[in-house]
């Protein structure tokens, strides 16, 4: 029998180094977790397997070691971990959650992740999202699902200083999002409209 070979939605994409650096993250496992945060059994079981408490507050994330829990909705989280451990972790969750009204599915192939790094990353995203990413809540760990370049996307502010933002899009949109970012993150297209006002030398 042949072994399944994983090929990410952006396999082979060469990192872009323009006004910011844009690169694909292909080695991350993702688990879709749903359940009732008010159910003590659900909270205890997930904490036991993941080693972290799920964020109950909207648009927050919790990270410990290799595992991160991103808030998706009041009853849904995206658990990220190294890809090689995704299936194992999903199995662990399914076992621990047996009998509890919940759902844990390995969805590592569903989404592609693009990492934006460098001063101005938020401004590049803001060209395609009707959101003020320079507002104070967009700080370390903040998660928001939003419309980006007309796609259903999600951003995770890994770090706000220096700016590191992970952009999650559905896999079939990955190439489009990538091309969009390639076009809008060139050095020539840098904006200085927001935050630190300075007249760029042209």
């Amino acid at each position: 029998m042949s072994d399944p070979v994983f090929r990410g939605g952006l396999a082979g994409a060469k990192a872009i180094d323009g006004s910011i650096s844009v690169s694909a993250i292909d080695d991350r496992g993702m688990i879709d977790l749903r359940g009732d945060i008010k159910d003590k059994k659900f909270v205890a079981a997930t904490k036991k397997v993941l080693g972290i408490s799920l964020p109950a507050q909207p648009r927050q994330s919790v990270n410990k070691g290799e595992v991160t829990a991103l808030w998706l909705s009041p009853d849904q989280w995206l658990i990220t971990c190294p890809r090689a451990k995704g299936a194992h972790l999903a199995n662990g969750l399914q076992t621990a959650l047996a009998g509890i009204h919940s759902l844990a599915v390995d969805v590592s192939d569903a989404r592609s992740i693009i990492r934006l790094e460098g001063q101005g990353a938020k401004e590049v995203l803001m060209k395609g999202a009707p959101v003020d990413l320079l507002a104070s809540e967009y700080t370390d760990g903040y998660v928001r699902r939003l419309r980006f370049a007309e796609l259903a996307a999600m951003i995770h502010v890994v770090s706000s200083d220096p700016e590191i933002i992970d952009l999650y899009v559905f896999r079939s949109y990955a190439q489009y999002a990538w091309d969009w970012l390639a076009a809008t993150s060139t050095k020539q297209s840098r904006l200085s409209l927001f935050a630190n006002q300075s007249i760029a030398s042209v």
């Binding site: 909207p58 909705s73 009707p130 959101v131 928001r144 939003l146």
Partner: peptide, 12 residues
Amino acid sequence: PVCGVVGEEGDF
């Protein structure tokens, strides 16, 4: 009113 997010119409 569920998650408290304020967004423009296209997000809804």
